[in-house]
Design a protein around this nucleic acid. Structure first.
Length: 259
DNA sequence: ATGGCGCGGATACCGCGA
């Protein structure tokens, strides 16, 4: 089962590019971030025409996450637990049943800039809630993954110019510490585990020809529970998607599971 | 590269992203 995560930066603006990607890459499951659409306006039909079940958790203008799956999705839940007053649509989860049942969590972690400030406080508070959900997933001792746009550069080797990000919310020490605490609970981060070499990126800014200069960062991650990591056959980053017509600034990251 | 580029939702600019 091929499971991909992709921050599409607006489903309406990205529809042709996302459909082309689905036709070429043919993931069984796609976890989408930044759909920037309310649920009622999400263009379900072209995805359903391609055989995908569609579950969305949208909001007006910003954020928004979705799951596309060729297999049925069960027990769909929306919103990261831990703060009923949080109205930002950044978390969706569901179970997909193939050869094995996998709990899928799609996430769009807050950017946090400028830091310090209230947006950075929100990012760190959100990561505390993510830690709690992550602990519960591990306690289940079943195959599960948390995939999406983490807005975290985990280590210096995950940025072409780490010094340029030193004081940014994506790379500040507190951000990296919070992320590492979650990973170190017992998750396997797919790309680090299988492709540990530096220079693999998942985001390139639209400005200043960043992609042509490979001035990128790796901020889209797939974290797997031990039971899920045991199923991983391969994983990769589809950097070539960034060179296509009217691209997102992110590219898809995928894992292939024996499931 | 203290400048850029792109999206959405409000209007002929702004908030936001990373």
């Amino acid at each position: 089962m091929k499971i991909a995560t992709f921050n599409i930066n607006g489903v309406k603006a990205r529809l042709p590019a996302v459909l082309d990607w689905l036709d070429e890459s043919a993931p069984d499951v796609a976890l989408l971030q930044e759909i920037k659409s309310v649920d009622e306006a999400f263009p379900r039909e072209p995805f359903e025409d391609r055989g995908y079940n569609v579950e969305t958790h949208g909001q007006k203008g910003f954020n928004g996450v979705a799951i596309l799956s060729k297999l049925p999705l069960e027990d769909v839940a929306r919103g990261l637990p831990g703060d009923d007053s949080d109205e930002q649509a950044r978390w969706i989860e569901a179970t997909v049943v193939g050869e094995a049942a996998i709990r899928l969590c799609g996430l769009y972690l807050p950017n946090g800039n400028p830091s310090p400030g209230p947006k950075y406080d929100y990012k760190l508070a959100w990561m505390e809630r993510l830690l709690t959900r992550a602990q519960d997933l591990l306690s289940d001792e079943t195959p599960a993954l948390m995939a999406g746009d983490y807005n975290i550069i985990p280590q210096a080797e995950d940025a072409a110019r780490p010094d340029a990000w030193r004081d940014d919310a994506l790379f500040r020490l507190e951000s990296r510490n919070a992320y590492r605490r979650i990973v170190n609970l017992g998750f396997t981060e797919a790309i680090r585990a299988r492709h540990p070499q530096p220079g693999l990126y998942s985001f390139w800014d639209y400005q200043a020809n960043a992609f042509d200069r490979n001035d990128g960062i790796r901020i889209d991650h797939v974290l797997m529970t031990p039971q899920c990591a045991d199923l991983m056959r391969d994983c990769g980053i589809e950097a070539e998607v960034r060179a296509k017509e009217k691209p997102s600034d992110h590219v898809p990251v995928w894992v292939d599971l024996a499931a």
